[in-house]
Write a protein that binds this DNA or RNA. Structure first.
Lengths: 110, 110
DNA sequence: GAAAATCATGCCGTACAAAGACAAAGAAAT
DNA sequence: ATTTCTTTGTCTTTGTACGGCATGATTTTC
């Protein structure tokens, strides 16, 4: 089977790969690794981090919360804990939207 | 007319009143006043702040965003800008908006 | 005189970034 | 082949800049 490796998705990514993938400083990724439970890379024999795609998604989410939406680390952590369906953004938005509708409707009915 | 003032809602509140109402330090309120456009108390001739209920609601909202939800000042500002309808109290607009929401809701309920 | 204001400065924690040290992986030289 | 050098990537630890108020100091208003 030629080219076999090239067609198989990698299981693990190094911190450098993740760093350039997401355009984030490696030290920042290490820092978040300490701060967020959802980022839990494996480590090889000498302590190097091995990230799965799940880890990478988690890092991307943290990045969004902190650098785009303007949460503190604490706030992001809290946000993530409160929405276990966190990686389903559509659902999240829909729920928020419905909540808003419900509120406003109850006001309307006076 | 006895007790007249006690039964009429105040138009303006001093910073001390707001401070104890919301259990916030006055310096923090002054600071937020500088940071958030939606907090815009009137000032009397010699500069004392006069807060309306609208201002107080705005402060309460900022407090919620920062101290409960964990936004940074920047993030809270950005959040508030992205949902202007929340503090737009003009009745007519609100009603028109609710009518729209109702429509959408009936669509959603299928 | 208690509470308001405006500065200025102080200060503490957060959120990284830089520093320093070590390991692995080629080239180059012996 | 093995040693040495250099580069590159990773690690942990420590430093630091900035955000977010708090605290005077001083003056004025209620």
């Amino acid at each position: 089977m030629p080219y076999k490796d090239k067609e198989i998705e990698k299981l693990y990514y190094t911190i450098g790969e993740v760093s350039s993938m997401l355009n984030l400083n490696a030290s920042q990724i290490r820092f978040w690794d300490k701060q967020f439970e959802i980022i839990k890379p494996h480590k090889n024999k000498h302590g190097n981090r091995l990230f799965t795609t799940k880890d990478i998604e988690a890092i991307a989410k943290v990045n969004e919360l902190i650098n785009e939406k303007g949460f503190t680390i604490q706030g992001a952590r809290q946000y993530l804990e409160q929405s276990p369906e966190m990686f389903d953004d559509k659902r999240e938005q829909a729920i928020a939207y419905l909540r808003l509708l419900k509120e406003k409707l109850s006001l309307l009915q006076e």
